[in-house]
């Protein structure tokens, strides 16, 4: 299991489009991807579940990945979030 904290710099926060990109990236891996804000846990592979967390600009949240390809998955997620959600194409 690996865990990492992120903050969204995107103006609108984690709104529908970036959230959809995040689920797309998460779904490429076999590991379980969880998005955690405060004590709420969302499934990183499900769009609605991420949206339900309500992650805004500046809100810290954690991504916890558990599974056989957790390191690759965390790399993918990190690239996406830190690249402000534009680099998801290069990654694949």
């Amino acid at each position: 299991m690996i865990e990492r904290e992120f903050v969204i710099n995107n103006e609108m926060g984690l709104h529908a489009r970036p959230a959809a990109k995040l689920t797309q990236v998460a779904n490429k891996y076999r590991s379980e991807v969880l998005v955690i804000k405060n004590n709420k846990i969302g499934n990183g592979k499900s769009l609605l579940s991420i949206l339900a967390l309500g992650i805004f600009k500046g809100t810290p949240f954690k991504v916890r990945i558990t599974g056989p390809d957790e390191i690759e998955a965390m790399c993918g997620v990190r690239k996406l979030i830190e690249g402000d959600f534009n680099e998801e194409r290069d990654q694949s």
């Binding site: 609605l48 579940s49 949206l51 339900a52």
Partner: peptide
């Protein structure tokens, strides 16, 4: 959760 109440996601169609 209040934010997504009564919404569904269907692959291929969306929300």
């Amino acid at each position: 959760p209040e934010l997504i109440r009564h919404f569904m996601e269907i692959r291929g169609i969306g929300i």
